[in-house]
């Protein structure tokens, strides 16, 4: 296959990706640095330091750090268990984690309203057990739970991938040399699973940082994350320049996480 003219087959996609991937991103920057009349301004971007916006951004960062941390805490032991408990765990794992995604994700998030609300499923169970009820719906813990629920698979899959690829001989050698389980975990498994952990972190962090759906559905519209602010600017206020300005700020975080992912990818290969 060395006829170079055949590479024209990629031309439609190349044109498409420039037109619908690269140029739209340039438009974000263009709208971010101009006002409604098209003259240059940095007002849209510097609007991030207004009280409402900076508060939303900080809140988003806090939420996404917390949800990333909880996902990691839940996913890591899960992956260790999955590599030991089941024999055909790979098929099993993809099944249990991918099946839920076939139900509309908005509906699944919405279902948590039912489970968490005042007279919901959880409080029914707590009442039955004579325990005090839990009122977390429309409060920050409900949003956090929604994030963990929606993004946990993004943490599990890369970690599981890297843990299951660890050479069993290394672990056996460690055990022969007298290491106990925690020494093996600390000295062998953790360092070798680090690339998976890093990609899991970036994969949970970005969607948690930018979501507006979860905070809308489980926060009762009272808690504004940076995603909500941007969404409202675009769809309710039709203030595209202001929305683009804040989107440009989000792009900084995304580019940063892309760089980290790319860096660890490269180290993973070598």
């Amino acid at each position: 296959m060395n006829e170079r003219r055949n590479s024209f087959l990629a031309a439609p996609y190349l044109v498409w990706s420039i037109g619908f991937i690269l140029i739209p991103l340039i438009y974000i920057l263009y709208f971010a640095f101009t006002d409604a009349s098209g003259t240059f301004t940095i007002g849209n971007v510097s609007a991030i330091i207004s009280y409402v916006n900076i508060r939303a951004l900080m809140l988003s960062i806090l939420f996404s750090i917390a949800s990333t941390f909880i996902c990691l805490l839940l996913a890591y032991p899960l992956c260790l268990i999955l590599t030991t408990v089941t024999s055909s765990s790979s098929a099993f794992l993809s099944l249990i984690f991918i099946l839920p995604m076939w139900m509309n994700s908005l509906l699944r998030t919405f279902a948590w309203q039912n489970i968490l609300e005042r007279k919901g499923v959880i409080n029914g169970i707590l009442l039955f057990l004579h325990l005090p009820p839990l009122y977390i719906i429309n409060k920050p813990p409900a949003i956090l739970l929604g994030m963990v629920y929606d993004f946990l698979p993004f943490m599990v899959l890369p970690i599981y991938n890297s843990v299951s690829r660890i050479d069993k001989d290394l672990i056996n050698a460690g055990r022969d040399l007298g290491a106990d389980y925690f020494q093996i975990l600390k000295g062998i498994i953790w360092p070798l699973s680090l690339p998976g952990v890093i990609s899991g972190i970036t994969m949970v962090f970005v969607p948690s940082l930018t979501t507006f759906v979860i905070s809308d559905i489980l926060g009762g519209g009272k808690i504004l994350l940076i995603g909500n602010v941007i969404e409202q600017l675009f769809t309710q206020d039709s203030d595209w320049n202001a929305g683009a300005g804040l989107s440009a700020i989000l792009m900084i975080f995304i580019v940063f996480s892309m760089i980290i992912t790319a860096k660890y990818d490269r180290e993973d290969i070598s």
Binding site: F20, I28, V206, T211, G227, L250, I254
Partner: peptide
């Protein structure tokens, strides 16, 4: 490299960028 952008980008940024286009 271009192909990876929509995969790693946040959906809200992709959506907004297309809307602006």
């Amino acid at each position: 490299g271009i192909t990876n952008i929509p995969m790693l980008n946040a959906d809200i940024v992709t959506g907004v960028s297309l809307m602006l286009l």
